[in-house]
Amino acid sequence: MPDLLTHALVGYIIATALAFNYEWLTPPWVTIAMMGTFIPDLTKIKLVVPSYQIEQLLGVPFDWFGLHTIGGSVVSVLIGTVLVPHEYRKRVFALLAVGAGSHLFLDALLITTSGNMSPMLWPITAYSFAMPELFLSSDRWPALVAGALATSVWWLKHSRTPT
């Protein structure tokens, strides 16, 4: 991952930009897109409870990496979707999916030693494709760029919306 600040800012930028076209997309809905960007990194539970400890406990194979994939993200997005009344479900599903999708897309562009992204298209395929490499997860500039863009889009939105 780039840091989660970058991911959350990108969710904010996309949702706020979409709000120029969709009137219903008010701040509470922007928040949902931001929450969507956190979904793939639920896999970081592994830093607290490593996968192998669960394997030892259960006696069967187990890997948190499944959360950081298309499959894990779709199920997580559905869980979020079920947690709202039906009139909001389309919106919540779309915004969580946009957030989670932007996260996986950015993570596909991380610099890795082998030049391949993690197998995040699983379970469609477990193949790790070679991808262009843009940044390290600990680089500072992605958050700076995202922060500048978020500020710009926030300013544009507020200068156009009479309050």
């Binding site: 996968s51 394997e55 069967v60 194979p61 187990f62 890997d63 948190w64 990496f65 499944g66 959360l67 994939t69 499959g71 894990g72 199920v75 997580s76 559905l78 869980i79 079920v82 082998s114 391949n116 197998p119 699983w122 379970p123 395929t125 477990a126 193949y127 790790s128 494709f129 070679a130």
Partner: peptide, 25 residues
């Protein structure tokens, strides 16, 4: 049901193992 599906995915993910042919070293 969804939580069960997620658990199934994580158990399945645990079986993948390494395979240089798909760049899993």
């Amino acid at each position: 049901f969804l939580a069960g599906t997620l658990c199934f995915l994580l158990l399945w993910a645990g079986t993948l193992g390494t395979d240089p042919d798909r760049n899993a070293f």
